[in-house]
């Protein structure tokens, strides 16, 4: 007897899975500053490098590179922090109370508080708990990350229809994936919808993160890198 070949899965999601960047390591700051300031310096350096990787990653999302350069910029300017937040959240899924920015940069609540990141800690852990409860899979994570960028509600798009098609393609991939995986989440016929309904909280969390880094910049506590500042500048 021959068994039918297992479906190879959704092409878009397979592409997203192979395009997932390797996790970065933090480069611990060695300046003679306080522990708290060193944590912030290390974090800002890591996030700046992560942002650089994120822009390279976006080009691998099926359909992204076909958009006009102006629209690519608009989507990234709108959605970069949401993508960064989702990345940190996904790394923190295995932890009960830490924010795992990198394997070697895990901050517990007390460390975040000492560094002035209490608000960010609370918001990121809230979102992390939500995805922990849902049992977010790697396939769902990569699709949500891409959708976040596609759905960044940028104004004045050059090719609004092309962006809509880009968004629809990702949505279709998510729906196709979920309709084929009802066995892994029995009774969750509405899983795709439930995942999409987490996006408002993701946006709210990213706004909190933007506020936090704008405040750090205003207080001039941490010198920020050029790329990070450029992206932040668009949010002020």
């Amino acid at each position: 007897l021959t068994h039918p070949a297992k479906p190879i899965g959704n092409k878009v999601i397979s592409q997203l899975l192979v395009s997932e960047p390797a996790p970065l390591s933090a480069i611990p700051d060695s300046s003679p500053s306080s522990t708290e300031l060193r944590s912030l310096l290390t974090l800002c350096d890591l996030l700046n490098r992560e942002l650089l990787v994120l822009i390279g990653w976006a080009k691998h999302i099926p359909g992204f590179s076909a958009l006009s350069l102006v629209d690519q910029m608009a989507l990234l300017q709108g959605g970069w922090m949401e993508v960064l937040v989702l990345s940190v959240v996904s790394r923190s899924l295995g932890s009960a109370d830490e924010l795992v920015f990198a394997d070697n940069l895990r901050l517990a609540e007390a460390q975040c508080r000492a560094a002035g990141l209490s608000d960010l800690y609370t918001a990121l852990r809230h979102l992390t708990r939500k995805y922990q409860q849902m049992g977010l899979s790697p396939e769902e994570l990569v699709t949500l990350k891409a959708m976040t960028l596609a759905n960044s509600d940028a104004a004045n798009l050059e090719g609004a229809e092309a962006v809509q098609r880009f968004r629809d393609g990702l949505h279709e991939a998510l729906q196709e994936h979920e309709s084929g995986h009802t066995h892994s989440h029995p009774g969750e016929l509405h899983r795709a919808g439930r995942l999409l309904m987490t996006l408002p909280l993701l946006r709210q969390t990213a706004a909190r993160a933007v506020d936090t880094f704008c405040r750090l910049h205003r207080e001039r506590r941490v010198p920020m890198h050029k790329l990070f500042l450029e992206m932040l500048d668009n949010k002020i």
């Binding site: 700046n48 490098r49 650089l52 822009i55 390279g56 080009k59 350069l69 102006v70 690519q72 910029m73 990234l76 300017q77 890198h225 050029k226 790329l227 450029e230 992206m231 500048d233 668009n234």
Partner: peptide, 20 residues
């Protein structure tokens, strides 16, 4: 565009070295 020089450069050409 002028405001987002680094992003613009990164998207235009992935091989351009960027001063971070």
């Amino acid at each position: 565009k002028e405001k987002h020089k680094i992003l613009h450069r990164l998207l235009q050409n992935s091989t351009t070295p960027v001063d971070l």
